[in-house]
Amino acid sequence: MPQITRSAAIADDHTVIRRSADDPEAFGAIFDRHASTVHRYLARRAGPTLADDLTAEVFLAAFRARGRYDLTQPDALPWLYGIAANLLRGHQRSETRQYRALARTGVDPALDGPADLVSERVTAAAHVRALAAVLARLSVREREVLTLVGQAQLSYPEVARALDIPVGTVRSRLHSARQRIRRALADFPELDLTNGADA
């Protein structure tokens, strides 16, 4: 029988999560791998301040639910995105208020840095304001699919896994969200949004 050589590669997420059932602190590796990615998604939807708190909540919720993790999935990120999206449902007012503020004033509260950087804020282009206005009007279900595909860059099956919905539902919600964006941005022909994937 050939000698089995231990791989020096870092253990996949599912291996870490399996291990964490017995050694809870091993779960720290999941945080170290994915916290800044999850924070970035949260910040792009709800602003960096809320994202700081929610990042901690995402990983606490994930830690408590780790016994239900599907151990056939080596990448925990879609699962974490799903938990993040779920937590954001409790902060819809804050999220949409920031989209509306950007649409109205051209200044994006989610891009605010620390106070001393305020003077460097740039006013958003007109089409970005129009986009923000659409984002404020989307249903939370549409916004989840749109941001997971467009911002988090998940594939359809990953979004389906993250949100616990069938792939067909991902397609429908994404279609509907994209259609709303294209309708709202029809006044900006210079964007040339015709080059999409639609037949």
Partner: peptide, 10 residues
């Protein structure tokens, strides 16, 4: 396309 726009948004 509109997804590129989302990729650049924030």
């Amino acid at each position: 396309n509109d997804l590129d726009l989302m990729a650049g948004f924030r």
